[in-house]
Amino acid sequence: MLITFKSKSSAGLTMYQEHAQRILDLLHKNASRGVITAAEAAKAVELLEQEVALSKLHPEVEADHAAHTHAHTLPEEGETPEIAERNHVGFAQRAYPLLEMLRAARDGGDDIIWGV
């Protein structure tokens, strides 16, 4: 399932729900429908930046989270563990576009909505 985040401060952003879920859980938001208000955006940026930093400091936790995503559990046919490791997209890379959207919303005083 896809989630499309929308804000007046930036272009729309579409993510797989399984990748957005970790971020939304961190922000105590529902994946099916929600809003991050302009007032909440500053705290959301802070929390997400901390989570990104932790994921970089503790790659073993990152690997555990990745093991629960659909893309990680279904390797390409003939893919070796070395290639899978090299092709792995981590939490920091997946979170970056939404983090940028949150920063723009914070700076522009706009809300981010999804599921409407």
Rank of each mutant, 00 (worst) to 15 (best):
M1A: 08
L2S: 11
I3N: 00
I3R: 00
T4C: 02
F5D: 01
S9T: 06
A11N: 08
G12W: 02
T14Q: 02
Q17S: 14
Q17L: 05
Q21C: 08
Q21F: 07
R22W: 10
I23L: 05
I23G: 05
L24D: 07
D25L: 12
D25Y: 07
H28A: 15
H28C: 09
K29S: 12
A31R: 14
S32D: 15
R33I: 15
V35W: 01
T37A: 06
A38F: 08
A38G: 15
A39V: 11
A39N: 04
E40S: 12
E40A: 15
E40K: 13
A41T: 01
A41S: 13
A41Q: 04
A42N: 09
K43S: 15
V45I: 11
E46H: 08
L47T: 10
L47Y: 11
L47N: 15
L48G: 08
E49T: 13
Q50Y: 06
Q50H: 09
V52K: 03
V52D: 03
S55Y: 05
K56R: 15
L57F: 05
L57G: 04
L57K: 14
H58A: 12
P59L: 09
E60W: 05
V61H: 09
V61P: 03
A63H: 04
D64F: 10
A67Y: 08
H68K: 14
T69V: 11
T69R: 11
H72F: 11
T73A: 13
T73F: 10
P75C: 12
E77W: 13
E77D: 12
E79A: 15
T80A: 06
T80E: 04
P81G: 08
E82S: 04
I83A: 11
A84R: 15
E85R: 10
N87H: 08
H88W: 06
H88E: 07
F91N: 05
F91A: 01
A92E: 11
A92L: 03
A92T: 06
Q93E: 13
Q93G: 05
R94E: 09
R94D: 08
R94Y: 06
Y96G: 06
P97S: 09
L99V: 02
L99G: 01
M101C: 01
L102P: 01
L102N: 02
L102W: 04
L102E: 00
A105E: 02
D107P: 09
G109D: 13
W114L: 02
G115V: 06
G115R: 06
